[in-house]
């Protein structure tokens, strides 16, 4: 008997629908947990965890906590696991776990310790909760589940709530400070400065010939050539007026070697 069922049973009679839902989803939740550990691919691992979290969300709803159940699905599954997945996807598809053990026997030890810990927690909770009946659910949900949580959050636990939010904001700001490279003013060139630098003395502002172009000049006087080296017409636009060079202009300038 698992702890969840103990609590359920202690709360009074378990309705059929509740029991059916539980016995369908509880194995799925366990399967997800085991699958998360067993999966070699990191993304598969995350997906198994999503399954477990979804089942937990439904369990919350089953146990008369609809708000926390929905928040579990929206926040944990919808946002936090999604960010995990985001990072895992960037890691790459083929980064599966290697199966070489660095510590001899660690897997056996981990399984044994995990099972032992689960047994300890399970028996401990079972012994502690055996025979106790849960009370106060109706009183807590008297004015509605959401209203009850809101009242507690903003009256009795307002300080804890605010401190938690301050902690989270500090963590977020800290991550940004660590990851964000702040450029000083002037370190990054603005568009105007880039243009000035481009036309400054010593810099040729025009485009350089593209790769694969072997012409020594971009002048229209240089004849166009096909890839095999033969001369070609049709490299100049038809609308340009034809030039008629005088014989002296057409003669070699003496610049060729």
């Amino acid at each position: 008997m698992t702890t969840a069922q103990t609590v359920l049973a202690a709360g009074g009679a378990v309705s059929t629908g509740e029991a059916v839902t539980f016995w369908i989803l509880a194995p799925l939740a366990l399967l997800g947990a085991i699958g998360m550990v067993w999966a070699r691919n990191a993304v598969h691992s995350a997906l198994w965890l999503v399954l477990t979290m979804l089942c937990l969300g439904v369990f919350y709803v089953l146990q008369a906590g609809p708000f926390i159940g929905m928040v579990q699905i929206i926040v944990y599954t919808g946002a936090i696991m999604m960010l995990f997945l985001f990072v895992l996807m960037l890691v790459g598809r083929d980064s599966s776990d290697s199966l070489i053990e660095t510590l001899r026997g660690q897997r056996v030890a981990a399984v044994a310790l995990g099972l032992g810990f689960a047994a300890l927690i399970g028996t401990g909770l079972f012994r502690a909760l055996e025979g106790t009946s849960a009370v106060g659910l109706d009183a807590a949900n008297a004015n509605g589940n959401v209203q009850g949580i809101a009242k507690l959050l903003f009256t009795k636990y307002v300080f804890a709530f605010e401190v938690t939010s301050a902690l989270l904001i500090t963590a977020a700001v800290g991550a940004m400070v660590l990851a964000h490279v702040e450029r000083r003013k002037g370190e990054r060139l603005s568009q105007v400065e880039q243009m000035k630098a481009r036309f400054a003395p010593g810099n040729y502002p025009g485009p350089k010939p593209g790769p694969g172009v072997f012409a020594t000049s971009s002048s229209v006087a240089t004849p166009g050539r096909l890839p095999d080296g033969t001369l070609t017409d049709g490299v100049h636009s038809q609308i340009l007026p034809t030039r008629e060079l005088t014989s002296s202009e057409a003669a070699p300038k003496g610049t060729e070697k």
């Binding site: 708000f67 928040v71 919808g78 959401v146």
Partner: peptide, 14 residues
């Protein structure tokens, strides 16, 4: 349900 709109948001998240 009492949290029906959150269900819509949860479906959007999933």
């Amino acid at each position: 349900t009492s949290v029906a709109v959150l269900l819509v948001l949860a479906c959007g998240g999933m």
